[in-house]
Simulated scan of single mutants.
Amino acid sequence: MVGIGVTAALTATAACGGQDTDDKSSGSKKPAAKASPAAQEALKPLTEAQLTKAAITKADVKGYRVGDTPDDEIPEVSVPAKPATCQAIADMFLLGTEPNATARVSRSLTSLERTDGTLLRMGLLAHKEADAKKVVADLRTQSEKCNSYEHTDYQYTGVKPLKAPDFGDEAVSYTMTSDIDGDKIPVTYSVVRSGSTLVVFYAMNALGGKAPEVPAAVMEAQVTKVEKAA
Score class of each variant (00 low, 15 high):
E98C: 03
G168C: 02
D183L: 04
S36D: 12
A35M: 15
T7G: 04
I89Q: 04
D23G: 13
A33N: 13
T188M: 05
G18C: 04
G117Q: 14
C146G: 09
E144V: 00
R140G: 04
D20N: 13
V214I: 13
V79K: 14
V226I: 12
G17K: 13
R193A: 08
D116S: 01
T69C: 10
E129H: 13
D22R: 04
K225A: 12
D23P: 15
L46Y: 11
Q155N: 06
V218S: 05
V2K: 11
A132I: 03
A81M: 10
T141F: 06
T7E: 08
F167D: 01
I89H: 05
T110E: 03
Q222M: 09
M1C: 12
E227K: 12
T21D: 12
K30R: 15
V223Q: 05
E98R: 09
S78L: 11
M1D: 10
D131G: 09
A81N: 10
I185S: 09
D116F: 00
P83M: 10
G123W: 02
F201I: 01
A203K: 08
D153G: 06
K29G: 04
Q40L: 13
K53R: 15
I4D: 06
D71L: 10
S28R: 13
L95Y: 07
S36R: 08
S178I: 06
A8I: 10
K145V: 07
D153V: 03
Q142E: 15
T69A: 11
E213Q: 10
G182P: 00
S26R: 14
G63L: 01
Q142R: 06
A217G: 00
A35P: 02
A130N: 13
R140K: 13
A217W: 02
I4L: 09
T69S: 02
V199S: 05
T7I: 12
L139K: 05
V79M: 13
S194L: 13
A49E: 13
V214W: 04
A32G: 15
Q50T: 05
Y189E: 07
D22T: 15
V200G: 04
Y64E: 07
A39T: 06
A206W: 01
G208Y: 02
Y149I: 00
S78W: 08
T47C: 09
E213S: 11
A206H: 06
K133N: 14
T47M: 14
K58M: 00
D179L: 01
K29E: 12
Y64C: 09
G208V: 08
E150I: 01
S143R: 04
V223H: 03
G67K: 07
R104M: 09
Y202Q: 15
G18E: 01
V136C: 07
G195N: 14
G209I: 10
A9G: 10
G17F: 02
S178N: 03
S106E: 09
D153K: 15
P45H: 09
L43W: 07
I56Y: 01
